[in-house]
Design a protein around this nucleic acid. Structure first.
Length: 802
RNA sequence: GCGGGUGUGGCGGAAUUGGCAGACGCGCUAGACUUAGGAUCUAGUGGUAAUACCGUGGGGGUUCAAGUCCCUUCACCCGCACCA
């Protein structure tokens, strides 16, 4: 009988829906297991084959955990606010809400067709007012604690999206989403003070089980460095504060550089004799986009400030001050001391402007190039630091700076505060009212959610205001504090807002009193295992850790970290090895695969495609191997023989396979788990193609996380009792994983000369003796002196002769 | 430039503490069954001058034994990037 995957898969998907077998229970004595995957953005394109890679992986883990006796929560929802939906709405004159509804319906159909064991009773949607009510609520708590603030600042402005971007959303100077040019624009923006959590976000990485590259990337992004702030007096009286990680090289400072945006320039303006040239440089620097500043500028530029000098506190030397765009206003103090002998950038600048280079660490040739790799060097030309090591000098100079009140040790971070405003329609309204008398006033919590108004047009304005600026009947309101007329905040939240806490809502999705009950959070949190893409490491993952820590601080959540374990899948590339995209014409539609091969084959193939953590190209030819494998299992159904347990010659095979599949799933080595199952089926075929009921039961259980529909169907067909979801995961006996008789290799001088069968527990002497008696081996060693004899148990014998 | 990673057949990829390189799958070759084969089954499949030798990007080393450890070098990928 042929296996009709389409009717079988539909049958079981309907049954799972009706029975609610995958609904997690909040009151259970079982241990909890919270498996999480990144909820999708419901785009018009539908599901990408990349989604099922992650979803199948955790589905396999969750299905296995259920069989192992855990109460499993495996939820799903929709991260539905965002630009593509809004742009589609603009173009086609449909309300974003309708667009979202249609896209969600399509995604839901696709996900259901793949047989994931999601708890659909907990489905959430970030655009649902009952959901974003709590997103707004969290924002208000941050506002009340001073972590949300408004700031006039230069922001990244995407010229195409007509919207500001967070630093994390700018990639190589262009918009991460659309690839358009990003320019700087000065705007008043809502900011979230993620920098206040920099130290904890960094340190607590030590307490969680994330794959190492995620930790490394987050550490780099936070970018902690320890150095010193040093105060330089100037000839105009104002002090100039600089930050350096190399205070030990202070005696080597031959000039100073401040960034073009540094406030002291305005203060000094009328005392600088070349102020016109300085202003010209400032204008040029401000015109440069991020892209130009990072990619195109290799040659150092700058202008000397004529009429002011800085005084080096260690030796009272007067040194010139320059402005240059290689110093950034946003890091440290926006000013540096330049030590050309030991910093590449300073060296290039000094060469161009013909400035002195003073060696202060011995060992390099500082006239030829900067000597930066000098951690083990000895100090010279440095007064009281002479003769000390770099490490000692760092300690001494910081002590000296502190004693003399001209500096102190200082820690800096690359991490910046999070630009939280977006000038778009399809996002959560920021629940703040602007009042002429009271300033920024939070909306009363009882008035949440602040809903989006229904409008005709969602076009962003060129002036940089949100589309909400065109709707006075929405933004005109009264001040919650004084009752006078006031205006609502026009900007909305970025897409990252809703996803910064969604896992909490899954724990208690229908709660109307709070974002989730204490009991539910206590039971489920932290997320046991979270799998998602590397592209979210410095965005979603960092942002959500920040929100979670805040919620922990105000007593809303019971854990200070949201995720216990974080893993990451590789991308699925197009058949040609390039990234899958419409423009490259290499997109594979999951619907087509499900229709042609079935969900089980699709799931199995995506897990078999290669190392889960690495990128892998799609291969339509290879899929059929997975289909054949499933059909061979189906074929076992016609070859079931009488007899209990495993047949003697199958005991080792069965135990080894159980061990391999069990351990490989836990380590996400799905490809080798499947290979082991295929190998088992091959062995069965070699040995006559028959199975006993117990052998079949075990095979079905092992296969069930990968191909649940087929496993359920066969389980029912043979009336093995209940459904496969009520069973227990098969156990293996370590002692039975090894066969009594094994074939080993006999080497002479490391080259294989023979094979022979020995008992696994045979003594070393006996095995070596047997090896030497082997005809082939005896011929090789006769007339030579045996120098060494080795036996690696169950593996090989090596006889070394001369 | 800094940080992380990867190089294994025609292809995707396997290889516990160093212990039979190429598991498993695709593809390919031959055969069987077929009106037919992009179906199924059986056998074979790293290379070559083939009882042997050579083979895990290149070169060197340690070892009885190296894909695995050490040194060196090349190539590619990812992240960050004038962060002082």
């Amino acid at each position: 009988m042929k296996y009709d995957f389409s009717s079988v898969e539909k049958k079981w998907q309907d049954k799972w829906d009706e029975s609610g077998v995958f609904h997690a229970k909040n009151d259970s004595d079982k241990p909890s297991f919270f498996g999480l995957v990144e909820f999708p953005y419901p785009s018009a394109q539908g599901l990408h084959v990349g989604h099922p890679r992650s979803y199948t992986a955790l589905d396999i883990i969750c299905r296995k955990k259920r069989l192992e006796g855990y109460n499993v929560l495996y939820p799903i929802g929709w991260d539905a606010f965002g630009l593509p939906t809004e742009n589609f709405a603009i173009k086609n004159h449909v309300h974003p809400e309708i667009v979202t509804k249609n896209n969600v319906a399509n995604f839901k159909r696709q996900l259901k067709s793949l047989g994931f064991s999601f708890d659909w009773s907990r489905e959430i949607n970030t655009t649902d007012p009952e959901y974003f009510k709590w997103t707004q609520w969290i924002f208000l708590q941050m506002f009340k604690k001073g972590l949300a603030y408004k700031k006039e600042m230069a922001v990244n402005w995407c010229t195409s999206c007509k919207c500001v971007l967070a630093n994390e959303e700018v990639v190589n100077g262009v918009c991460e989403r659309c690839g358009s040019e990003v320019v700087h624009k000065t705007k008043s923006q809502w900011m979230l003070k993620i920098t206040a959590y920099a130290e904890r976000l960094l340190n607590d990485l030590d307490t969680v089980d994330y794959i190492e590259r995620v930790k490394t990337q987050q550490r780099n992004w936070i970018g902690r460095s320890t150095g010193a702030e040093v105060k330089f007096e100037t000839t105009l009286g104002d002090d100039l504060m600089i930050y350096t990680t190399r205070p030990d090289t202070l005696f080597g400072a031959t000039y100073m550089v401040i960034s073009p945006e540094h406030p002291l320039i305005e203060k000094w303006a009328d005392k600088l004799s070349n102020i016109d040239a300085v202003r010209e440089y400032q204008v040029e620097a401000s015109k440069k986009s991020d892209f130009e500043r990072t990619e195109l500028v290799k040659e150092k530029t700058g202008v000397k400030l004529e009429g002011v000098k800085a005084i080096n506190p260690v030796n009272n030397t007067e040194i010139p001050i320059f402005i240059s765009d290689y110093v950034l206003i946003s890091y440290g103090t926006g000013a540096i001391m330049a030590v050309p002998a030991h910093d590449t950038r300073d060296w290039e600048f000094a060469k161009k402007f013909d400035l002195p280079i003073i060696e202060v660490v011995k060992g390099g040739e500082v006239e030829k190039e900067a000597f930066t790799d000098c951690a083990t060097g000895i100090m010279v030309n440095s007064g009281f630091l002479d003769g000390k090591s770099v490490e000692e000098a760092k300690v001494s100079i910081v002590e000296w700076l502190t004693e003399n009140g001209v500096g102190a040790q200082k820690v800096n971070y690359k991490l910046r505060d999070w630009v939280f405003s977006r000038q778009r329609y399809w996002g959560e309204p920021i629940p703040i009212v602007h009042c002429d008398c009271c300033g920024y006033v939070p909306v009363d919590e009882a008035d949440l959610p602040i809903r989006l108004p229904n409008v005709e047009s969602y076009e962003p304005t060129d002036s940089g205001e949100s589309p909400l600026a065109n709707i006075p009947e929405w933004y005109n309101t009264t001040c919650p504090k004084c009752g006078k007329p006031a205006k609502r905040e026009l900007d909305t939240m970025p897409q990252w807002a809703g996803s910064s806490w969604y896992f909490l809502r899954y724990c208690d999705p229908h709660n109307t009193e709070c974002l989730a009950s204490k009991e539910a959070l206590e039971y489920w949190m932290p997320v046991t295992w979270y799998n998602g893409g590397m592209e979210h490491t410095t965005l979603h993952l960092l942002y959500s850790r920040f929100w979670h820590k805040f919620l922990y601080d105000i007593g809303v959540v019971p854990t200070c970290e949201p995720y216990g374990k974080r893993t990451s899948h590789g991308m699925i590339l197009g058949e040609n090895g390039e990234k899958m995209s419409k423009s490259r014409g290499n997109v594979v539609n999951p619907d087509d695969i499900v229709n042609e091969y079935g969900a089980d084959t699709m799931r199995l193939y995506e897990m078999f495609i290669g190392d889960f953590e690495k990128a892998a190209p799609w291969s339509s030819a290879s899929i059929k191997g997975c289909k054949r494998f499933l059909e061979r299992i189906w074929g076992l159904g016609e070859n079931v023989i009488d007899g209990d347990g495993y047949r003697d010659f199958m005991v080792g095979e069965m135990n080894r396979t159980i061990k391999k599949v069990t351990e490989d799933i836990d380590e996400m080595k799905f490809n080798t788990a499947i290979a082991a199952l295929m190998a088992l089926i091959n062995v069965i075929a070699e040995k006559g193609g028959k199975v006993t009921c117990d052998e079949l039961k075990t095979i079905l259980l092992l296969v069930s996380p990968f191909a649940p529909h087929l496993a359920e169907e066969m389980w029912e067909m043979f009336a093995f009792g209940g459904t496969i979801n009520d069973q227990s995961w098969p156990k293996f006996d370590a002692a039975k994983c090894v066969d009594n008789e094994v074939e080993i290799v006999v080497q002479v001088n490391g080259k294989i000369r023979a094979r022979m069968s020995v008992g696994i527990d045979d003594a070393q002497e006996a095995v070596i003796e047997k090896a030497k008696n082997n005809e082939k081996v005896a011929a090789e060693i006769s007339g030579k002196t045996v120098i060494k004899e080795l036996y690696v148990k169950g593996k090989l014998v090596n006889i070394v002769v001369k």
